[in-house]
Design a protein around this nucleic acid. Structure first.
Lengths: 297, 297
DNA sequence: CCATGTTAATCGGAAATATCTATCGATCAA
DNA sequence: TTGATCGATAGATATTTCCGATTAACATGG
């Protein structure tokens, strides 16, 4: 029955019987039969079918939510027993918002020092994608914005608050200033993340509030692309100060504090709420709490 | 795999492969094989075996805790889907401490008014047994003392605080008093619940604090037996005031307030913490919250 | 309106799994 | 030592699962 619930989860992810089956390592008839079995067991249709997958019924959505929990718990059980047997080991999957990438190291380094057999997979995603991956148990934890939380379903550990800096060549426009306002920033052509990124949307909002329509000369989903452009001294960008600090500043580059409305955009670690947690995730959360204290100064 | 986990739960309850198998409706070899399968799947021994069942290993205890949760969630899922299909219906199993028996009606009556298809099973148990039945998912909720809680694992709704009265014949010893102290009570021969009941232990403690060794002439696990004896006017007892109120007083019988140390012994509804709850249990908890407000006056 | 491709359900048989009965081996108590 | 109890094991049987092939139901494009 547990495997059948996994079929359901795969179907929810893939929205396609054939692909879901492939993900589960079975053939499409097997997955179809599995779904039908759950439906028969409950005596309720869970999936709206036509000639193709047409989403879940109301009952299906409820079952899906339970399935997520049950399957997640089953995995957590497995992880915990293995941890008891072999000590902390395994792969920790992290989904991280681009602006939080510099933080990853502050978690992984001490965690690996404590538990040398832990391995990591770090994916860069938008905050929406991070949330989605967490919901579907495709990652163990996320580093993302803690606003618009759905509390109760996740454990969140605040790590730090983003503050923004204008990254610009010292001899370029605004390059000589000790500090700038968002109005100033809106005047110069910028390289920013793509609009599906929350960081971009936050910056957009600050800029929009100045009333000036900013010019975004270059967009990318990679901080590295932005940085490499700014590095030439011929482009400007807005970055969280921690990112700027990590990338390091050449003598031609300055990271100028931006003053003004400081709406709090907290970044933190988010993990599925589960009691008890998967040991690996628990270790990560514990590490995050330690790091949070260090960052609080 | 889910069924195998149920095997494990049954084994934990019965501490005996044969009986556990019978409970599960399978033969003993089947249950043995099921347990072994889980062990093989994890590569860890879960059960200490000699020629007989010798308890669980450390890993086994952990798996057991997860199994409780997972199996409970699976049942909750089933209940919820059926509730979506047929409306609220089914049987609500309650385990109730004897002194809380009069409260049962205040929950069941309005609940049944709202949901006519709900049926009830009410069991009288000691508070320890109530806790155990809850842990093993053999009941949906309990009415019991809220002290020494293990929070997080259960949802508790406080309903009222017990206060005690001396139930005695008006023409018997102390029968004329407007109020009595525990020292007074310790002087008269009493009918009380058996010592495995928390109510008895509470009363014992009050009596012991007076320094006088009380005489317990009759013990029973049934409030009704106590009442029927006191009713003759020739026996005395100590009962929570709500019980006395429900049983009704004849003209020869008085329920005299006992003054003195009023350690708070709160009685409330306890249900397994699960998010979301089984719909039937959720309805009961909701009802309990309403009733709690009414009782708070 | 038909051809074509996509998608999920259905069917039949092979393979895997589960369960039962019967029995065995170990342990414990008398 | 004997008898009783308990759990593991073996072998036979039944059930379930799963795959491959096929079919049915729709889309889409011509």
């Amino acid at each position: 029955m547990l495997e059948k619930l996994e079929f359901l989860l795969a179907l929810a992810r893939e929205k396609h019987f054939g692909r879901a089956a492939e993900v589960c390592g079975v053939t499409q008839p097997t997955l179809s039969a599995g779904v039908k079995q759950i439906e028969d067991a409950f005596g309720v249709l869970l999936v709206n079918r036509g000639s193709r997958f047409r989403g879940f019924t109301a009952e299906g959505e409820r079952v899906l939510e339970w399935a997520r929990r049950i399957v997640g718990d089953a995995r957590a059980m497995r992880e915990e027993v293995l941890a008891l047997k072999h000590g902390l080991a395994g792969r920790l999957r992290l989904a991280v918002v681009p602006t939080a990438l510099p933080m990853v190291e502050t978690l992984t380094t001490p965690l690996r020092a404590r538990h040398p057999n832990v391995q990591f997979t770090v994916l860069t995603r938008t905050s929406a994608e991070v949330r989605h991956l967490l919901d579907n148990l495709e990652v163990d934890a996320g580093l993302t914005y803690l606003n618009n939380e759905s509390p109760g379903r996740v454990t969140a550990v605040p790590l730090y608050r983003e503050s923004y800096r204008l990254l610009v060549a010292a001899d370029g426009p605004l390059g000589h200033r000790e500090q700038v306002t968002w109005s100033d920033v809106a005047q110069v052509p910028l390289c920013l993340l793509t609009p599906d990124m929350q960081n971009r949307r936050i910056i957009d909002q600050y800029l929009r509030e100045t009333g000036v329509e900013p010019t975004i000369t270059l967009e990318s989903d990679s901080m590295l692309v932005l940085y490499s452009h700014v590095r030439t001294g011929r482009w400007a960008s807005v970055m969280p100060s921690r990112v700027a600090a990590m990338l390091g500043l050449t003598d031609v580059l300055r990271a100028i504090p931006i003053i003004g409305a400081d709406t709090s955009h907290t970044i933190g670690l988010v993990a599925p709420a589960r009691e008890p947690m998967i040991p690996l995730t628990a270790a990560l959360v514990a590490e995050a709490r330690r790091v949070a204290v260090l960052l609080a100064d």
